[in-house]
């Protein structure tokens, strides 16, 4: 299935959704999906277009928005990547629907995005920090995170103590 066919089939299935193809500044076939319709589009991609394998979930912090990026492949057909993107213009409280109910493999990766980038996922079954401890100040992958050496004295009070570690 070529990229044009995928796009045509998606537009046929979702005539009301403003799908946008990102043509410049990317090497992959990239679709930008409105955040509120992400789950519908993703379910359709899995059930009808054969994208059964969600390889990668990640996020990027741009000056005007957060972007959550999904890299999809098809294990049945093989072939190249389909990149889904969601723009989240709300820099204060970025929230997006979780795709863990669709692809359970997104679970840890979404927790990682939540932990390191501070984007929450609606309907995620177990949204906790994964790499850092609860109470760690800030989200390191954000661009406004102060990138310096943190001392033991600074961080130790934020660490959970037994019996809650």
């Amino acid at each position: 299935m070529t990229n044009e066919e995928i796009l045509a089939k998606l537009q046929e299935a979702f005539p009301d959704v403003a799908l946008r193809v990102q043509t410049e500044e990317t090497k992959d076939f990239t679709l930008i999906v409105p955040a509120e319709r992400l789950v519908d589009v993703a379910t359709h991609l899995r059930d009808h277009l054969g994208f059964d394998y969600l390889s990668n979930v990640t996020s990027v912090d741009y000056p005007d928005r957060f972007e959550v990026v999904y890299h999809l492949f098809s294990m049945k057909r093989g072939g190249g990547v389909l990149t889904l993107k969601v723009h989240l213009p709300d820099k204060e409280h970025p929230v997006v629907d979780s795709v863990t109910p669709i692809w359970p493999g997104a679970n840890y990766q979404e927790r990682e995005v939540y932990d390191l980038m501070g984007i929450s996922f609606r309907n995620h079954p177990d949204l906790r920090r994964i790499m850092l401890w609860d109470g760690f100040p800030g989200h390191p992958l954000r661009k406004d995170f102060e990138n310096r050496t943190y001392t033991y004295k600074e961080l130790e009070p934020t660490r959970p103590k037994p019996p809650n570690w």
């Binding site: 410049e24 500044e25 990317t26 090497k27 992959d28 390889s55 990668n56 890299h71 990547v81 990149t83």
Partner: peptide, 8 residues
């Protein structure tokens, strides 16, 4: 150049 890529 400005842009992005996913390789595996």
């Amino acid at each position: 150049p400005k842009g992005e890529a996913y390789a595996r």
